[in-house]
């Protein structure tokens, strides 16, 4: 073979070589993306002939965002909060400012909400947010300073109190203050809180992502837990994005984009539903009534600044309770 022909042959081989993506995500999506990855790899192979391997990294959403900013070379980020994805732009300049406009539904291909998990028989008779403040009820929720899921829990509680009290911020603050007085342990992440409640048998009610609640009941036994859907809760919209700088560095932008597009396909949405996230397509359950973070808190940036920044509302009510 002539050298030039050999060069082209090698180039052709390289074009069909294996591609590897790194999806940096948050705790409760581990099982979801295991299925998504397998399905996408199969679809991509059928479409392009290229073998793609997707590696996953999971942890608290904020910590994962920090890791990417600090150099964890994620091709895609699928985090719990828009705020954490915003940080990839604001602190790392890894993605453009308008990242949320690049995919449908504000780049959130699935949603979830916050529900309660109680022990079988619901011994404390917990049916809605007010029941969490009953004497003797121990509530398990992670630390909103470190866990994206915990922030959703906190805001869901705050928003429900606002709804009930006609928008009275002081009463909402009182409610959340009382609520956190009944939280015995603040785990750093949602998965840790699930362990505290489900495996260590601590507390009477776990505030959890809906999908995490189903996972808990499936893995630890339907005879041990019940899922309680409150009357009102928050619409959690976990966003996804290509991490432009690293995808371009790795030459994986095309496949990374296709990977995220796959989440919006019927097959992707079916996998989403299978894992008890709420797909964007199809009918939605009536309960709970959902409010968005934009409606109640003016968006993630404002909510973060008001509630979770140092010396924010959470620090005040938690320090104040000591």
């Amino acid at each position: 073979m002539k050298p030039l022909a050999l060069l082209f042959a090698l180039a052709g081989t390289a074009a069909l070589a294996d591609t590897t993506l790194l999806n940096v995500s948050y705790d409760p999506t581990r099982e979801l993306y295991q299925d998504v990855n397998a399905a996408f790899a199969k679809a991509w192979k059928a479409k392009t002939g290229e073998t793609v391997t997707i590696n996953q990294s999971h942890g608290g959403s904020g910590k994962q965002a920090r890791a990417v900013i600090d150099g964890l070379e994620a091709d895609v980020a699928t985090l719990a909060l828009g705020y954490d994805v915003d940080a990839l732009h604001q602190k790392g300049k890894l993605i453009p400012a308008d990242w949320q406009k690049r995919l449908p539904n504000q780049s959130a291909p699935y949603t979830s909400t916050i529900v309660f998990v109680v022990r079988k028989g619901n011994p404390k008779q917990i049916h809605d947010w007010d029941d969490l403040l009953k004497p003797g009820v121990l509530v398990v929720t992670p630390n909103p300073k470190t866990s994206g899921g915990a922030r959703w829990n906190y805001l869901a509680a705050w928003g429900s109190a606002l709804r009930k009290n006609g928008g009275d911020e002081a009463k909402a603050r009182d409610f959340v203050t009382q609520l956190y007085r009944q939280v015995p342990i603040l785990d750093s992440g949602a998965r840790g809180a699930t362990t505290t409640f489900g495996q260590r048998n601590i507390g009477h009610v776990l505030l959890a992502w809906e999908n995490e609640a189903f996972l808990l009941t499936q893995e630890l036994g339907k005879d041990r837990f019940e899922i309680i859907t409150p009357s009102v809760s928050i619409l959690a919209e976990p966003p996804v994005t290509v991490v432009d700088r690293y995808a371009d560095k790795h030459g994986t932008r095309k496949v990374a984009q296709a990977y995220l597009d796959f989440l919006y396909t019927p097959e992707g949405q079916a996998i989403v539903a299978k894992h008890h996230f709420r797909p964007r397509t199809g009918a939605q359950p009536e309960r709970p009534q959902l409010f968005t973070i934009d409606e109640v808190f003016g968006g993630w940036t404002k909510a973060q600044q008001t509630h979770f920044a140092d010396r924010g509302v959470f620090d005040q009510i938690y320090e104040g309770g000591k």
């Binding site: 003797g136 121990l138 007085r181 009944q182 939280v183 015995p184 342990i185 603040l186 309770g321 000591k322």
Partner: peptide
Amino acid sequence: MASSSVTWAQEDVGVVEDGPTLEALDQ
């Protein structure tokens, strides 16, 4: 933060007039 909350739980929940319940002690 987590450590301080344990104290609250001991003081504020699972206590009846005659003292902590067995469940509270277990918790």
